[in-house]
């Protein structure tokens, strides 16, 4: 069995881990697929949160709708932090932690202490990212994204 010295060839992810936000259009190879997935998940979560904000305002109140929106935005921040952790996993600069849970803990503490906010809409809003994941995965299963040529 032939052993390959992979330390001499740092992966694309380790090169890009130091960059804040890589441009997907300029990337090629397998990591472009990962960044596309990450961007797609964030976008689908944002769209779902935006679509649900209006009906919630109309059905309940502006307070409930704003609480939901706050939870949804926190969920998206959580998802981005989780994606960043996954991106740095196994690279030369591993900073894998549970920082993303701090977002949720802070959110729930603020929601319970500040009486202008409701806990349940915030929690359900936070879970919007899961709906976004399901919608994105079903969408890409039905309509696979076209790979850029060249």
């Amino acid at each position: 069995m032939e052993l390959i010295d992979i330390s001499a060839q740092p992966s694309l992810a380790s090169k890009q881990a130091n960059q804040a936000e890589p441009d997907i259009s300029q990337l090629s190879g397998s990591m472009a697929e990962y960044y596309r997935l990450k961007q797609g998940l964030v976008m689908s979560s944002l769209v779902i949160a935006g679509l649900l904000f209006g009906p919630l305002w109309w059905s309940y109140s502006l307070k409930v709708a704003l609480s939901y929106l706050l939870g949804a935005l926190s969920g998206i921040v959580y998802l981005r932090l989780l994606a960043k952790n996954v991106e740095q996993l196994g690279t030369e600069n591993p900073q894998v932690g549970k920082n993303q849970l701090g977002v949720f803990i802070g959110l729930i503490i603020v929601a319970t202490q500040w009486h202008q906010l409701s806990v349940l809409p915030i929690f359900l809003g936070f879970l919007t990212y899961k709906v976004g994941i399901i919608v994105y995965v079903v969408w890409t299963t039905i309509l696979p994204p076209s790979t850029p040529q060249g």
């Binding site: 694309l12 990591m31 990962y34 989780l82 952790n85 991106e87």
Partner: peptide
Amino acid sequence: EGKIRGTLLLCLAF
């Protein structure tokens, strides 16, 4: 790598 990391992200989120 990208495919594996993407699948891992989805699994970890759930």
